[in-house]
Design a binder for these strands. Structure first.
Lengths: 158, 158
DNA sequence: GGCCACACGTGATGC
DNA sequence: TGCATCACGTGTGGC
């Protein structure tokens, strides 16, 4: 019964907070980064570890200053904030993977599609590399026989 | 207020269900798969497409029978259920990508690590393929010159 | 007992 | 309109 009451109280808190604080739009970071990468190709791509520097301006309990909704981070504990950080880092990885997949624009936004493309490209590159390796083998053999023949001809010509 | 009441009702349902049915841990699909793959290496790995067969027993509005907590799907609309399906499909993709990355066991569990590895392997394969291509170029040139020389020697020997 | 990674259900938004 | 995708805060299990 105690459990039940506390649970209901949490529900109250939840709704209370949301109804007063939560007026900002939701998915900003992901779209922003993607659009940035879309328009100006590189620039901040030199920092795939941007989360490290990013950690510095937002150490632990403090929150990124990216956009609204973050006011709820300072109050009400930092659990939600850390979770948000985790999500953002994950999205960074997604975006990075996407840019590796197709250096040409336009960058995909769909996580499912990104993963699918990653799998596809990975397999393609594997077979491509394998094919090249086989060709190399054959070319080397051909070179060997060619050298042999050259030497043979030389020897016979004297 | 209606929202609030319905929310509290859901809470009731949830707790009711959980206390009687749901004694299993929560995040079963992903963790189960991972733990299985970690401990006993293979065995049920033959079913990476479990969602296909899985879809059959759970078409659209009906919910998977995997474990408790799903009764809440039949009532209260199928929104949460669809979202859950989406998550599971995403996790399948993750698992698939992971198995493509390293055909040898054991399979990684960390999404962040999987994405990072994917980026790394992708770059590695790219450069590897590029290197092979360059080597091919050089080998072909060498063959060309070898052939020329052979012909020259032949001509001079007569 | 705190932290981390994840699953969960829900509100928001675009198509 | 309904559906898909996402971000969000929270609950939870494992370490």
């Amino acid at each position: 019964m105690d459990q039940l009451d506390s649970f209901r109280d949490n529900s109250w808190d939840l709704i209370d907070i949301n109804s007063f604080i939560d007026e900002a739009p939701s998915d900003f970071f992901w779209n922003d980064q993607i659009q940035n990468q879309n328009q100006r190709a590189v620039a901040e791509l030199e920092a795939p570890l941007s989360s490290a520097t990013f950690q510095e301006e937002c150490i632990e309990t403090e929150c990124p200053r990216k956009r609204g909704r973050n006011e709820s981070c300072s109050k009400q504990g930092n659990k939600a904030c850390r979770e948000r950080l985790r999500r953002e880092k994950l999205n960074e990885r997604f975006s990075e993977l996407c840019s590796v997949l197709e250096p040409g624009r336009p960058v995909k936004t769909d996580k499912m599609a990104i993963l699918g493309d990653a799998i596809r490209v990975l397999n393609e590159l594997k077979t491509e590399s394998e094919e090249y390796k086989e060709i190399n083998q054959k070319l080397m053999e051909e070179i060997k026989t060619l050298k042999k023949r050259t030497n043979f001809v030389k020897r016979n010509s004297h």
